[in-house]
């Protein structure tokens, strides 16, 4: 009998305990599928964050290491520089990556550390119960800005892809969303490209995934998807922000054109 679908070996099969409508489960599965399909699962290490996805290591079927909040890129650096053959990914939320761990994120990108970051941007602190995140939208309510994020007090939310795109060391940067099936497929392609970037030794790669958090947004899953579409994507435009392969081709083309002119 022809097998038309089977569960990826990239997942352990342990049932996930995320809330209804949460994006983590989808993102986990995409990462799991990619490392299995690229044939690197057995030499992969996932750096597990603090937050709801602290249970990542139970679900993704590869080695893991769970460290302090925000330090994923530093931990990944330590692993990668000691064992360059290991495929290292750091799975991080917005508070982790863009608040407490901002320095580690930026410096890993500046060093073009040959690691992959999976950045789940749901604009809220999930596990601690819905506090304001560095990516919480202006006006969006949280338990620490109950009247909505105010520019006067909290300033503007970080656009991480745009910020990192200014660094020469950032080799691949993409922002995707989990709001619909087509975008989930695009997310998987971006994750695949990010891991390929690392496998080919091309340096720092990050996929920022806009993801719903119905529980802490105080919404139904359906309404949370609408917020992704109507509020998140307009402020955090989807797309590829850096692509080393495209840039290499463009440079080669420019060189050719220079030659022709000369």
């Amino acid at each position: 009998m022809k097998v038309v679908f089977e569960e990826t070996k990239g997942l352990t099969g342990v049932p996930m305990r995320y809330c209804p409508g949460c994006g983590h489960g989808i993102a986990h599965r995409l990462v799991a599928e990619v490392i299995e399909e690229l044939g690197v699962r057995e030499r992969s290490v996932g750096v597990v964050p603090v937050g709801c996805s602290v249970f990542l290591d139970e679900y993704i079927n590869c080695d893991g290491i769970q460290g302090p909040h925000g330090r994923g890129p530093a931990i990944a650096t330590g692993i990668k520089r000691s064992k360059p053959n290991v495929i290292v990914f750091s799975y991080q939320g917005d508070g982790d990556l863009a608040s407490i761990g901002m320095a580690e994120t930026i410096h890993a990108a500046a060093r073009s550390e040959n690691i992959t970051i999976i950045f789940i941007n749901n604009a809220i602190y999930g596990m601690t119960g819905g506090q304001m995140a560095p990516t919480t939208l202006v006006g969006m309510r949280s338990t620490t800005c109950p009247a909505g994020r105010s520019i006067e007090v909290n300033g503007y939310p970080f656009k991480m892809c745009e910020l990192l795109a200014t660094l020469p060391g950032a080799s691949y940067l993409a922002r995707t969303s989990l709001d619909k099936a087509a975008n989930v497929i695009k997310t998987k392609k971006a994750i695949e490209k990010a891991f390929k970037t690392q496998i080919q030794g091309k340096g720092f790669s990050m996929v920022e995934i806009l993801s719903p958090c119905p529980t802490d947004w105080g919404m139904t899953p359906r309404a949370a998807i609408d917020r992704l579409k109507d509020e998140m994507i307009p402020y955090f435009p989807l797309g590829v922000y850096r692509d080393w392969e495209k840039e290499e081709k463009e440079r080669a083309k420019a060189r050719e054109e220079d030659k022709v002119e000369a």
Binding site: G78, R81, S82, A103
Partner: peptide
């Protein structure tokens, strides 16, 4: 490696020691 901070340095050790 000269890390970006002491905090990053010790966490780099955390990762490397795990190997």
């Amino acid at each position: 490696i000269q890390a970006e901070s002491e905090v990053a340095a010790i966490n780099m050790l955390f990762g490397s020691a795990a190997t």
